[in-house]
């Protein structure tokens, strides 16, 4: 059986064209043996390639960038002037700081939902997701890579909001607090990243955009990212407490305030991650049984 030449360096970046002409071995030429137990590079290499590909696609999409960068930054600047600068939230946190932290969370929410959501739904409808499933990468790696890629694009959005907060909002924090806010906003984006992927799995391409946009504002507003929950009418406060965005915000404010991070908040967020993760697995199983996975 004739085989084309095989690249030796698997992880090497491809040089740009032109390529040297490949040599085709004569018929009957034995197939090269696979590298014996190539170790972690063999299994991790493809996933790194896939992850890099996904992040690259997101960062090249002007639509994605416009939404994820535009919304939190514009809202920060908008609401910054809308309230009196000296207003105090929850005792010790100035509004401009509270708003920056909230917009970090909102930016993470927007980026994570949009990275999955519509894009994933379209990919699944078009058959690309299915095409990847017939390559050697394991079935879970599609979902896994999507979530990791979402998390990776969340970080620059958070940093950008912080730069805007420091530059335009005059936010001054101690270095450990900056670090804490950044890491916390980043880590707490995980439920939203999983939610984005779940929406991509659950919802048709036509419905995905309105669902993502709706969730962005429902989670953002009712979670208290625009207006502190304590200023909301009673019934809305009840709803707020079951939303992940409220608990994200609560943790972030606690970091600013130098308070203890409440385990209850972590528990709720962890619960969302687990529940949504199981929902994705369930949806996948259902599709597999019906032969449309």
């Amino acid at each position: 059986m004739t085989r084309p030449p095989v690249d030796a360096a698997l992880l090497e970046m491809e040089p740009a064209a032109p390529y040297p002409a490949p040599e085709h071995p004569a018929p009957g030429h034995p197939a090269p043996e696979p590298p014996a137990a190539a170790g972690w590079r063999a299994s991790v290499g493809p996933l790194l390639a896939f992850g890099g590909f996904e992040v690259g696609r997101l960062l090249r999409s002007w639509k994605f960038l416009a939404i994820t960068i535009g919304f939190p930054v514009i809202f920060y600047l908008l609401f910054l002037g809308d309230h009196t600068a000296g207003r105090i939230i929850g005792g010790t946190v100035p509004w401009r700081v509270y708003l920056m932290v909230s917009m970090c969370s909102f930016g993470a929410l927007v980026a994570a939902l949009n990275a999955g959501g519509t894009r994933l739904s379209m990919e699944r409808a078009s058959g690309w997701a299915r095409q990847l499933r017939v390559t050697p990468i394991p079935a879970w790696s599609y979902v896994g890579t999507k979530i990791v890629a979402s998390m990776l694009v969340v970080l620059p959005v958070i940093l950008l909001v912080e730069v805007v907060g420091a530059g335009f909002g005059g936010v001054r924090l101690a270095a450990p607090v900056w670090l804490g806010v950044t890491l916390l906003s980043w880590a707490t984006a995980l439920p939203f990243a999983v939610l984005g992927v779940f929406i991509g799995f659950l919802v048709s391409t036509e419905a995905a955009f309105p669902v993502v946009t709706g969730l962005m504002f429902v989670l953002g507003y009712l979670g208290g990212l625009f207006t502190p929950v304590s200023l909301m009418p009673g019934p809305l406060q009840v709803i707020a407490h079951i939303l992940p965005s409220y608990h994200v915000d609560a943790l972030a404010v606690a970091v600013i305030d130098g308070r203890m991070l409440a385990p209850a908040d972590w528990l709720v967020l962890g619960g969302y991650v687990v529940a949504l993760g199981l929902a994705i697995v369930w949806k996948h199983r259902v599709e597999e049984a019906r032969g449309i996975a």
Binding site: A49, F50, F53, G56, W128
Partner: peptide
């Protein structure tokens, strides 16, 4: 399905290079 079955927003060579890298050989 509804589309062309290729990832949108990338060039053909990028998609092909990605898929190649998913294989060991």
């Amino acid at each position: 399905g509804s589309g062309v079955g290729l990832p949108p927003g990338v060039r053909v060579d990028q998609a092909l290079r990605l898929v190649r890298r998913l294989y060991r050989r």
